[in-house]
Write a protein that binds this DNA or RNA. Structure first.
Length: 272
DNA sequence: AACTAATACAACCGCCGGCTC
DNA sequence: CGAGCCGGCGGTTGTATTAGT
């Protein structure tokens, strides 16, 4: 069924935003907050569609954006999160305060992909390129292995890594069970029995997105001593992947990627 | 200095899922 | 309960900038 366009194309500007449009958008959101994107353009006097306004605000105008180059720590964090989550840019962005999904996506496609390729690592699978993907895939599913992230990024060790730049990420030991999670497919060697716990938001009671966001309702953690499975952690406890009956819970010991240790600045995004 | 290729990144497009009526 | 609306996401494109020749 055809859907009505989000805006009347005939009367909307497209392309790069002008300074004046930016100013209008900023002024409006300062005054009224991020309300209904659909009605915002008209209310703000912008000849843009709501989506365009939202994108401009989220990706560019928001005052809490970090901007500037990605740090080595951020690089490694993105790589590790991507190895777990795949192209879930919004989830990855949820772990990188001040960074947007769009920014991370672009950065991945331009910088990190190349970086991994130069290390001989397939940026999609996070496996060594010369290793046949098929062999690595289904056949190994039943085997249980225990590896660390640093193993997953084996080639990194000689250059900048093994220093566990992301505050202990390298020490995260993951044991694999036979889950069909995307991450498990992507990293067949990884035992992804991880848990999700509040990143930096839940404790601080802020909501960025209203809808499901596993990493926003939970961080990834080692589950060896706790009660819910990776599927639950990803918010899919009703799925067949769920191997437990818990609905997920807080774990005070959580420190995936050193998020609690303050190595990275996991402040609130101040978003509503 | 001029041209071309490569790169970076802002913005758009189409789809999806949750919510509302 | 189902259709439609809306916000959000991921993939892709367009264009400005930079590097190379």
């Amino acid at each position: 069924m055809g859907r009505s366009p989000c805006c009347e194309k005939a009367h909307t500007n497209k392309g790069a935003w002008t300074k004046e449009e930016d100013d209008r958008l900023i002024a409006y959101i300062r005054a009224h907050g991020e309300g209904c994107w659909r009605s915002l353009p008209k209310a703000a006097g912008l000849l843009r569609c709501g989506k365009s306004c939202r994108l401009r605000w989220i990706n560019y105008l928001r005052p809490d954006l970090k901007r500037g180059n990605f740090t080595e720590e951020e690089d490694e964090l993105i790589i590790k999160l991507h190895s777990l989550l795949g192209n879930k840019w919004s989830l990855i962005a949820g772990r990188l305060p001040g960074r947007t999904d769009n920014e991370i996506k672009n950065y991945w496609n331009t910088h990190i992909r190349r970086k991994l390729l130069s290390r001989g690592i397939d940026p999609t699978t996070h496996r060594p390129i010369n290793e046949p993907a098929a062999a690595a895939g289904a056949s190994s599913q039943d085997s249980i292995k225990t590896i660390s992230f640093s193993a997953a990024n084996s080639k990194e060790e000689d250059d900048d890594d093994d220093k566990n730049t992301t505050a202990g990420a390298g020490s995260l030991i993951i044991t694999k069970e036979d889950h069909n999670s995307p991450a498990a497919e992507r990293c067949p060697d990884l035992n992804l029995e991880l848990r999700i716990s509040p990143p930096y938001g839940q404790q601080q009671d802020h909501h960025h997105h209203h809808h499901q966001d596993p990493l926003k309702t939970g961080g990834i953690r080692d589950t060896s001593s706790s009660s819910s499975c990776f599927a639950c952690s990803l918010g899919i406890q009703n799925s067949q992947d769920c191997s437990c009956s818990s609905g997920g819970s807080s774990n005070p010991g959580y420190d995936f990627l050193g998020l609690k240790t303050g190595v990275l600045d996991y402040r609130s995004l101040e978003m509503k």
